[in-house]
Computed example of a mutant assay.
Amino acid sequence: MTGILIVDESAVVRQVLAALLRASPGLQVLAAVPGPGFAAEHLRRAWPDVIVLGLTADGLGFLRRIMAERPTPVVVCAAPGTSAEALAAGAAAVIAKPATGLKRSLERDGDAIVAAIRAAAGVRERVRVPEPALTYAAGGAPAAGAAPVAVDRVVAVGTSTGGTQALEVLLPALPATCPGVVLVQHMPAKFTSAFAERLDALCRVRVKEAADGDPVLPGQVLVAPGGRHMELRRADSRYAVRVFEGPPVNRHCPSVDVLFHSVARAAGPHAVGVIMTGMGDDGARGLLEMRRAGAYTVAQDEATCVVHGMPREAVLLGAVDRESPLGSIAEVIFHHG
Rank of each mutant, 00 (worst) to 15 (best):
A173C: 00
A293Q: 03
G286C: 02
G61T: 01
G327N: 03
V52S: 12
A295V: 07
I66M: 06
G227Q: 12
Q220T: 14
G122E: 14
P130N: 04
D236Q: 15
A211I: 11
R14E: 06
M279T: 13
A224S: 07
V13S: 10
V272A: 14
G273Q: 07
P34T: 07
V207H: 03
S255T: 10
E289I: 02
R44F: 07
M1V: 12
H261V: 02
L134D: 08
L30R: 09
F38I: 01
L53V: 09
R22D: 15
P73I: 04
V154M: 09
Y136R: 12
A156W: 05
L199G: 03
D152A: 04
P269K: 12
A84G: 13
A86H: 09
F191V: 01
T100A: 11
G213R: 04
P175V: 06
V157S: 05
A112F: 10
G226F: 13
H335T: 11
I4V: 15
M276K: 07
D282F: 09
E289A: 14
A210L: 08
R64D: 07
P179F: 06
E85F: 09
K103A: 15
L20F: 11
G273D: 05
Q185V: 06
V182F: 01
Q15H: 12
R124D: 14
F260Q: 03
G54K: 08
L17R: 04
H42G: 04
V76E: 07
A84Q: 14
M310H: 07
P311K: 02
V13Q: 05
V320Y: 03
K103E: 15
E107K: 13
H335L: 12
R198Q: 13
L43V: 11
A143Q: 07
G273I: 09
V75N: 04
G286I: 05
F191Q: 02
G280N: 10
I95F: 11
S105I: 02
R285V: 10
R124F: 13
P248T: 12
M276R: 06
L27H: 14
E69C: 05
P142Y: 02
A295D: 00
G81K: 06
T2V: 15
D282V: 11
A173S: 11
E302W: 04
R45G: 09
V274D: 05
A210H: 10
R128S: 13
F260A: 04
V298I: 15
R234S: 08
A314D: 03
A194I: 06
